[in-house]
Nucleic acid binder design. Structure first.
Length: 723
RNA sequence: GGGCGCUUAGCUCAGUUGGUUAGAGCGACUCGUUUACACCGAGUAGGUCGGGGGUUCGAAUCCCUCAGCGCCCACCA
């Protein structure tokens, strides 16, 4: 008796039912896959923020990676996709602090470190389920049994072990350096978290005192009480005669001692051609002072207030600037004041104006030679001398990590060339605390606290990217020599947004290279950002957000996945277009109706062996086989947008529009040969179509598969046609 | 200042190592109540591939140049 499907495909309900069936099957876990799945293929999900909600960018990333992992699984690979979440401490702690401030009127110092950390951790854990259930809604075939969290025990062990080993290798050191201090967030931030904003500023030209021969220009008068030198270009005829001379001056009410030094970095054209050197409050000046062995007094503190003794003490920097300007004018030392545009460094997260300060921080030395004990990276042999920077460069140039998008590869190499030591300490409380303990002059570095009394742990925590950098192997059991690590590392693919190429991708290469002598992944597919229909980034202030869950509710996850993937070359930004998603909802219905039609005209049982076929039907199957081959190649070479579009096109404009129409009379006619040939064609074309489309639209294809081939197993592990 | 891109139909974009009349989706227009589907079907219009020059038998594709747009990095005190 022919079965009959409803006239319309309704994704509501079906999607969660299908996901439950998949999860129950156990096939998300490669250990449960049938015998034929031998060769490993692994991806580690870029962990979303544990306190976050699924946004359209995640949806895109999930669609992309799930398509790849489903394809590889059907091809017979031992496919593993590892899920996880990130504590994202620098985002999470302030969030919780804000809540506490609002509800209890207390700041973090009133709460205390231990209690705050406990609360932040609890908050993070409580929000975990939100993001995880949302990722499930996308249809992501993640192995939940291997779920990892950056702050769970296994990952904590990995982090402290990694720190200890690098410390012992001499690659982690503590140093006094000018860092980007964010007075608002009360922490150091990395260069990558600093943004530059153009602001109006006043450029003051003045001399320190009446007998000081060289005028200098600055926008930051208040820092000048901390000057210890004036730098001029060695070839500058105006100032050559003064090089090496030293002067005393009472600047405002601070006794300063200024030496004139030569430095080729000084631009003779800018300002007066002379640079007032403030070693403690400028990166460039710090280096000049270092070269010339000059003192480096700090005159501004962590709260962006003056710390110099005298009348300026505890004044805000802006206030001190006004006071000094007035004083200079009164003394007749101020030559001119100009209004200029200036780029101000601002903390991306808090909006605080960066105050460069000298601070004791922990760093990873990227240029320091060390002996790598073992290495599988081409061009770096075990036991040879190398540097972390060299590893990061070689991983790409050797091709061990394939980064086929040339533009991204170029900017990666350019970034490596300009890379400085990585400051890994942060002055917040929630996060991986630096595994260093002090007792008097003693210092201990270890995975666990030292025994004995009087030890105090370093108060700082690690940059969140430190733990993220270990992610490909910390999720697979490292530091133990686990089976997973041996089987699935290096992972097969990493697919991050270009935003985090430097922050994350490069640092994974660094860590994996040092700790395992391996690359973390063998290929990188960098994707673009999802923007709104006008090409703007999604942001709260623009209120242009699109909630993927709303879209899923309206059109289904399958349609959303297609809408995100089709027609966008991977690596370029894409504009989110709801009408496109709607189109793929219609497509799901089209496919559903092909199946409906087929079932209406099908024999009771699927035909087991090829019957005698008409020439036309045989040719149609040959064409399908050619299409399959083409699509398979696109999938292998990660041209997912083409594979998806071609599949769509075949199903709608060849299968539905041409084949179905052509065989209709045969199916309803009386010639048994024509009829059986047509039935076979329908059955085969549908089966292949479902397989080809499954990586992109897993729900509707699996749902149809269950209706049409109830005696077969799950479509998600159906073998991909070998073509 | 250094680096990387983009400019193809009204809109959003493909075009996979240069190869026959440049493609898709959406939109527009015309026609269609055929029992798979109106979340549909049949069809039509629409592009000198940003401008100019060059290489080649052949260029949207390679080179030079001009114009416009964007991103990343650094940052002048």
């Amino acid at each position: 008796m022919p079965r009959e499907l409803p006239k319309q495909y309704d994704h509501t309900g079906i999607e969660s039912d299908i996901y439950a069936i998949w999860e129950k099957s156990g096939f998300f876990n490669p250990d449960n896959l049938p015998e034929r799945h031998k060769e490993p293929f692994s991806i580690v999900l870029p962990p979303p923020n544990v306190t976050g909600v699924l946004h359209i960018g995640h949806a895109y990333e999930d669609a992309l990676q799930d398509a790849v992992i489903r394809f590889q699984r059907m091809r017979g690979k031992r496919a593993l996709w590892v899920p996880g979440t990130d504590s994202a401490a620098t985002a999470t702690q302030p969030k919780v602090e804000k809540i506490i401030q609002k509800e209890e009127g207390k700041n973090r110092h009133e709460i205390g470190r231990e209690e705050l950390v406990r609360r932040v951790a609890a908050f993070a854990k409580a929000s975990e389920n939100t993001i995880l259930s949302q990722v499930r809604k996308m249809g992501a075939s993640l192995d939940w049994s291997r779920y990892a969290y950056t702050m769970d025990d296994a990952r904590n062990t990995a982090v402290t072990t990694a720190f200890q080993r690098m410390y012992e290798a001499g690659l982690i050191y503590r140093g006094n350096r000018i860092v980007n201090w964010d007075p608002k967030g009360q922490t150091v931030i990395s260069d990558d978290e600093v943004v530059h904003e153009e602001r109006d500023a006043k450029l003051y030209t003045f001399t320190y005192s009446k007998d000081f021969p060289i005028p200098i220009a600055t926008t930051r008068l208040e820092t000048k009480v901390g000057d210890t030198a004036v730098a001029v270009h060695p070839d500058d005829p105006r100032y050559q005669q003064y090089i090496g001379k030293e002067y005393d001056a009472v600047f405002y009410d601070v006794l300063t001692h200024i030496k004139v030094v030569a430095d080729r970095g000084v631009d003779m054209e800018f300002g007066t051609g002379a640079l007032g050197v403030t070693p403690a409050h400028s990166m460039a000046d710090w280096e000049i002072a270092d070269k010339n062995n000059l003192p480096r007094p700090q005159v501004i503190n962590e709260y962006a207030k003056m710390s110099v003794d005298g009348a300026l003490k505890d004044k805000k920097t802006t206030e001190a600037r006004e006071l000094i300007a007035t004083w200079l004018a009164e003394q007749g030392l101020l030559q001119k004041v100009e209004n200029i545009k200036q780029n101000v460094s601002v903390a991306e997260r808090t909006g605080g104006i960066i105050e460069p300060l000298p601070k004791l921080q922990w760093f990873i030395a990227v240029d320091k030679p060390f002996i790598i004990s073992r290495s599988q990276i081409s061009g770096i042999s075990g036991g040879s001398e190398t540097t972390l920077k060299h590893i990061m460069r070689t991983a790409i140039t050797s091709g061990d990590v394939s980064m086929p998008q040339e533009n991204h590869r170029k900017s990666y190499m350019h970034w490596i060339d300009n890379l400085h030591d990585w400051c890994i300490s942060r002055q917040i409380w929630f996060g991986h605390r630096i595994p260093i303990w002090y007792r008097g002059d003693e210092l201990f570095c270890g995975v666990t606290a030292p025994s004995g009394d009087g030890w105090e742990q370093d108060p700082d925590v690690l940059d969140t990217w430190f733990s993220s950098a270990l992610w490909t192997f910390s999720t697979l059991g490292w530091p133990s020599d686990s089976k997973d690590l041996k089987t699935f590392h290096p992972t097969s693919l990493m697919s991050p947004a270009y935003e985090i190429l430097f922050l994350w991708v490069s640092r994974m290469i660094l860590m994996s290279g040092f700790h395992l002598g391996q690359v973390p992944f063998t290929s990188v597919l960098i994707h673009g950002l999802v923007r709104d229909s006008k090409g703007r980034k999604f942001s709260k202030s623009l209120d242009n957000g699109v909630d993927p869950l709303d879209i899923i509710a309206k059109y289904g996850a399958d349609a959303l996945r297609m809408g995100l993937l089709v027609g966008t070359a991977i690596g370029n930004d894409l504009k989110f277009d709801e009408s496109k998603v709607k189109g793929y909802r219609n497509f799901a219905n089209k496919l559903w109706n092909i199946a409906r039609f087929m079932l209406m005209n099908a024999p009771d049982q699927p035909i087991a062996t090829t019957p005698s076929l008409t020439d036309e039907d045989a040719q149609a199957l040959n064409e399908l086989s050619a299409v399959t081959k083409d699509i398979t190649k696109d999938m292998e070479e990660l041209r997912l947008y083409l594979a998806a579009e071609k599949t769509y096109h075949y199903i709608w404009h060849t299968f539905a529009d041409i084949l179905v129409e052509r065989v209709k009379p045969h199916l309803t006619g009386t010639d048994p040969v024509l009829k059986e040939s047509a039935q076979w064609l329908m059955q085969e074309a549908l089966a292949t179509s479902l397989i080809l489309l499954h990586p992109f639209m897993p729900f509707v294809t699996e749902a149809i598969w269950r209706e049409v081939f109830p005696n077969k197993g799950l479509l998600m592990i159906e073998p991909w046609p070998s073509a």
